[in-house]
Nucleic acid binder design. Sequence first.
DNA 1: TCGTCTCTTCAAAGATTTTTGAAGAGACGG
DNA 2: CCGTCTCTTCAAAAATCTTTGAAGAGACGA
Lengths: 151, 151
Amino acid sequence: MTSLSEPAERLALALADGGMQRSTARVLAGLLFTDQEAMTAGDLVDTLGISSGSVSTALKSLSTVGLIERVPAPGSRRDHFRVREGAWATLMSSQNTAVAIMRDAAEQGIATAGANSPAARRLVEMRDFYDYLWKELPAVIERWREQRSGS
Amino acid sequence: MTSLSEPAERLALALADGGMQRSTARVLAGLLFTDQEAMTAGDLVDTLGISSGSVSTALKSLSTVGLIERVPAPGSRRDHFRVREGAWATLMSSQNTAVAIMRDAAEQGIATAGANSPAARRLVEMRDFYDYLWKELPAVIERWREQRSGS
DNA sequence: TCGTCTCTTCAAAGATTTTTGAAGAGACGG
DNA sequence: CCGTCTCTTCAAAAATCTTTGAAGAGACGA
């Protein structure tokens, strides 16, 4: 049983702070920092020292959000996984949902608050900000993708 | 004891999903959606139905990160609080710290990984992405501030 | 200075989330 | 089809995080 490097554990902590489950974050960090091309669930159990159940749950959730992918492994019964290209842009994009929720909450508050009330003033500022982000963030990521493929 | 509106509670949930403590999120939502100019700790206890201890902790942490401010209230012993102008931009900016942590974790991983190893390739992509965000996000917020003051 | 009102702190209780481990489903080669 | 190996699921246990409530510190007016 090997174990995760210091920077890998630190990354996992940061991801967990951002709301990702701890085991899920450690699995992602494990897949990122390994020197193998891909890892199996068993590899991860050994590396991380967690149960196979946790690894299974983590792999499923990372696959669902598109951060990792199952990789063909001819001649092996076990599934091999690796971090997908562009995973970080994907992770960032998923934040857009949060932005939309904020904007919509503000929008609905405005509908309820009396015009010119203090609440309305605050909520309009909030709505405008998140509406701005809602338009800008995808553009930021798009520029990244262009820059990356262009160079 | 009044209670928080539906959109306010939804907003609190969204903030909690993003990592903010639940009571803290509800306090912020309360301050945002109230029709008063400012609220006291007692107001919040009544509105939210939580203990004074929780309110105190929440107010302190929101003040620390710059989302709310204490407001002068002549003739009252109680402290009055309100959401600060530009709070949302502040909240967004604090995400920059998370971006830096990600970039640095990648950087350190690169230093450890063998050149041309699979790990190094993945980590360089990650480092470049977060380095890009590290530069771009402050610019996005700056453009918002300009646009807002300019109109 | 005293009395009162408000705010803060923190240990214990409570709630929630996460992990485990074992049972069983699934898949594949023989 | 059978046996084996792997993966998934889920209830119970463990760990963690949050809230409470009460004690006490602080501040202010009289």
